[in-house]
Amino acid sequence: MQLVELQKSIRDFDAANVAVYALSYDEADALRDFRDAHGIAYTLLSDPDSKVIRSFGILNTLIDPNDHPWYGIPYPGAIVVDAEGVITHKFFDRNLAVRAGPEQLLGAALGQSLPEPELDRVAAPDDVEVTVALDGDHLALMVQRDLVARFSVPPGRHVYAEPAPEGSVGVDVRLDASERLVRRPIVRPASEPHTLAGTGESFEVHHGVFELRLPVTVNSAPRQDAPEITIAGEVRWQCCDDEVCDLPASQRFELMVPVSAPTPPALGNSRGAAAEPNAMAHFRRMSERRRGAG
């Protein structure tokens, strides 16, 4: 699913001149069949003895070496490197079903730079503008995308970062309870220390334009009668300057996000077996080879 979702965005990676690789312990000919079935245009890599996986130290050792054919898989994840070959970001989740989505990976590769702040100069001084949107145009099973709350704080003012001083409200995004939405801790920009001229009190704040990113995915495929998921919740903040503090503010949001139908699994049902050419044969051969290797 992650690989197919990456392919859907491959033009964006190409346009940004970011190379994409995906490595598994599959045999090369199994990857070739997968690549051809899904029109994968980026580079699929074969590590059938898990040599590369071991060299990175990410072999899943929770699996018994005799547990064929699962032994040999890595803890799935993604590593982003810059032009110099230095690792800048890593995406690994404790739930092996949760994978970084294309927008997260491309954003990381591009340094996730915010555009230059464009504050509305005619806004009333206490106006904090907030927009909430998904970074991506849909959700898919397992594939993580960021819900982005973008704040625009007028010049000369600030909002409290978390943790806020006692009695004040730090900027935050809260999602309503949802059975289907899998969420991960919010990613916050670095805050800045702020000291009040009068009292010398010091706390952490955000200025100007900044984003909170809340990684989400869905744990189930769309139902026929529900091809979308509602992501609802509330953003909250408290805006101040050195003289005046507004009352805490909040704003509800409700987004309807399409959920794409999953790529059928390679094994386990006839539809899936048909979707992945020779999947059963590859699986059997892989199992047998591993069993033979002991």
């Binding site: 992650q2 690989l3 990456l6 990676f13 001149n17 970011v18 190379a19 994409v20 690789y21 995906a22 490595l23 598994s24 312990y25 599959d26 199994a30 990857l31 997968f34 699929l44 996986i53 990175f56 990410i58 898989i73 890595p74 803890y75 799935p76 994840g77 993604a78 590593i79 982003v80 490197v81 810059d82 032009a83 092996l96 994978r99 970084a100 990976l105 491309l106 990381a108 590769a109 591009l110 699994p265 390679a266 094994l267 992945e276 999947a279 590859h282 699986f283 892989m286």
Partner: peptide
Amino acid sequence: RPAVFVFYRSAVW
């Protein structure tokens, strides 16, 4: 070039 390198479990199952 900058690059994204994905480790995943299997393209087969």
